[in-house]
Design a protein around this nucleic acid. Sequence first.
RNA 1: CGGGGUGUGGCGCAGUUGGCUAGCGCGCCUGGUUUGGGACCAGGAGGUCGAAGGUUCGAGUCCUUUCACCCCGACCA
Length: 416
Amino acid sequence: MRMSQLFTKTSKTIPADEQAKNAQLLIQAGYVYKEMAGVYAYLPLGIRVLENIKQIVREEMDAIGGQEMIMTNLQRQDVWEKTDRWDEKNVDVWFKTKLQNGTELGLAWSHEEPITEMMRSFIASYRDLPVYTYQFQTKLRNELRSKSGIMRGREFVMKDMYSYTVSEEAHKKFYDSVIDAYLRVFERVGLGDCTYLTFASGGAFTQFSHEFQTVTDAGEDTIYLHRGKKIAINKEVLTDEVMGQLGVKRDELEEVTAAEVGNIFSFGTKKSEPLDLYFVDEDDQRKPVILGSYGIGITRLMGVLVERLADEKGLVWPVNVAPFKMYIAALGVNENVTKAAENLYNTLTTAGVAVIYDDRDVRPGEKFADADLMGIPYRVVVSEKTLANNQYEVKARTEAEATYLDFDAVIKKVAS
RNA sequence: CGGGGUGUGGCGCAGUUGGCUAGCGCGCCUGGUUUGGGACCAGGAGGUCGAAGGUUCGAGUCCUUUCACCCCGACCA
């Protein structure tokens, strides 16, 4: 991508109507556009980050047997009535609308019911199980108050996975594999060292559910960390009994604020019974299917990355999720400089490496400031000075010192 | 939903107790000089002050209603 063709612009000032650091920086750097409170559009830079995060999640979900699909945003009333969740007294985040003939529809705030209803078409026998399916979907929630920028919006992207298994044992096994997969996801997006498997309130079928909480002041939850065991307990379930079960002592725990980036939950037969999702086992016995649901807030994760990693100069992206790996800044309007920069840009682009080439006729300071604000992991400077030694100046976003490399070394640096 | 705050060119802001043709910085357009950390000079375009109603000789400044946005709280399968 050439900087001169990118339609978004960076701004020298932060938007006055945003308080959250993630929203301030993402808007300032041109990653997102605020349509209204809690509703953000993802611009060319923003969607690249989002897609990179999704791809990591996709790979990990596929690795444990997940099959990707996508449900609909318009939902039926009758499906939700089966679990008594159509009523706004029970679910207060509904957006609803009507067909022209007056039929009421719901706008998807979750997909547990519709997807389970759908599975009746495909699950009849134990031979059809297990099923693990997931999607990346936009959820619409009529939150009373949105806040924290893209971390708590009325419209957001979530990866939600659902498991359908024959027994509690089979469920438990998959559930545990999801925990491992999630930990790999958070490791790969660059939050491994500050994201904790957290014990939270369960439901009718299990004592606990599990959350994945990333430590950040921008979060909304209070959790108690056990750094040694790399686990945490949500404040809502912190009791002597729970601490005893998990083998931790109160004075080993550290109270911190965190953001929930993932949640996994066992439903048992709580959904399958009212929604009539049964299967027949080897002994011709009719049994309800065991359900689990597993979510990762994709857009929230992006917000948390900003909150955790940004510095006083702007955004900072880990290489794995950055919109571009390298920012090529050509300094001056010199012909040789332009030629060398174009060559580097073309070589990397042809090799499939995402790089952004600042080909604008602006002063060096502006290019440096934009490279920093946009948070591109590596910045390479091409100028008469560097070319005099047949070299390129390469600086990591998170480091102060630059190194000088020749052409092949620059390629090697980002092509790995 | 309760409490608090804010709406003035694209962005960030200033506009004393109501008073003349509504300012400033950034950005934008034209020309020129510049080119290693957001340059400089000259000239220019762009707002009717969130919206509606009212008080007044006169309203960005006062009153009423309303909309939007931010923050705190409550809420968050």
